[in-house]
Design a protein around this nucleic acid. Sequence first.
DNA 1: GCGCATATCCCCAGATTGTGGCAGAAAAAA
DNA 2: TTTTTTCTGCCACAATCTGGGGATATGCGC
Lengths: 211, 211
Amino acid sequence: MIRVSIFEDNTQFREALSLLIGGTPGYSVTGSYGDPVNLEEKISESDPDVVIMDISMPGRDGIAAVEILRKYAPDIQILMLTVFEDEDRIFRALCAGASGYLLKNTSPSKLLESIREVSEGGAPMSPAIARKALGLLQKFGGKPDASAYDLTLRETEVLAQLVRGLSSKMIAAELNISYETVRSHLKSIYDKLHVASMTEAVSKALRENLI
Amino acid sequence: MIRVSIFEDNTQFREALSLLIGGTPGYSVTGSYGDPVNLEEKISESDPDVVIMDISMPGRDGIAAVEILRKYAPDIQILMLTVFEDEDRIFRALCAGASGYLLKNTSPSKLLESIREVSEGGAPMSPAIARKALGLLQKFGGKPDASAYDLTLRETEVLAQLVRGLSSKMIAAELNISYETVRSHLKSIYDKLHVASMTEAVSKALRENLI
DNA sequence: GCGCATATCCCCAGATTGTGGCAGAAAAAA
DNA sequence: TTTTTTCTGCCACAATCTGGGGATATGCGC
């Protein structure tokens, strides 16, 4: 039996959801609310396994509610159910701690399946949402691209140690070469990365995934 | 009619897939290969809408194949079908350009559904995979967590500039405060982050998303 | 008021880094 | 073989950074 709480400001839609979920064997609706005010209280009284959350609600933003809920009860799975499909909101909701993201045009059977899936540790998303989430991931992951600045092998090694936070001396010890040699490599690295200090080099390396 | 090409080195599994997909109305298998050697040729002769790709194959890695295919024919949707569920491989496959990622224990009906979904612009993933992909996304997008070391507002600002690669002097200019003040803040930052140099601070800040 | 945290400045001594130049040995490419 | 690249090492000077002292002022809470 999966215990579900619903947060959705549209009364009609909320009732419909409640009827659908509550009327299906294996599911029970333990709470149904029009806003996330006094969220903790509502959660503790309904004690759900899964929370269905709308994004736009009066009083408090659904995404903020997700963040709070994440902290208050990390084990509760959160399923966003909303009409918004802009990248920004998807991203913020997922990063806030939602485990699934469905559009409101999702069919009842898909919705029920998704509730089960999210309670079992999955991450159900509407196809369009999943594709956008994937796009976000690809944007971040880009490419581990050390070749762009064509650092030599040794230079890459030195840079790697630098990124670990080591000083020139420590790097020398780590790589079993002279302190001065490390400094020589550093010069080349600065040249190739177009930077002028260790900090800049580390910053660039980490930002652009050069290690 | 969805045209599907299969790349999978296990002959039995490949044949089974071929039978399943080819035997279902609405789907046709236009190519079935044991390795991705001469990938471009195989693709142009089979002209698929969707490619099903294994990760481990003789000759060439499936992930590398995805990258090449992405460039050669960007409109072809790629569905990974493999046994691996480590974050690294998932991440690399998705970033290389795969649009879906299924585990080999996926049921035939789910598989067929996923092929349709990916061809329609979705991003089907096995629940466990989806959850891991979500985790990756959250890791990247996680909002700055400076609170852990409770840096003050000013210290956070200084750290932010440091991460940009600026020197103490430059930070002083940027924040319109004295060089010595910057140094004072830096001392506190070092103290709180348990580091002893700019490089270390930048490294820690970027790794732990303190900015 | 009194403590406490924050933010702002200062000085010093010693260590580290940035910059410039130089050069031999080994490896790879021509 | 000759040339080029990479890896190695060194010196010197100026600039910057680190770690140790303090000092003043402004709020905020008790």
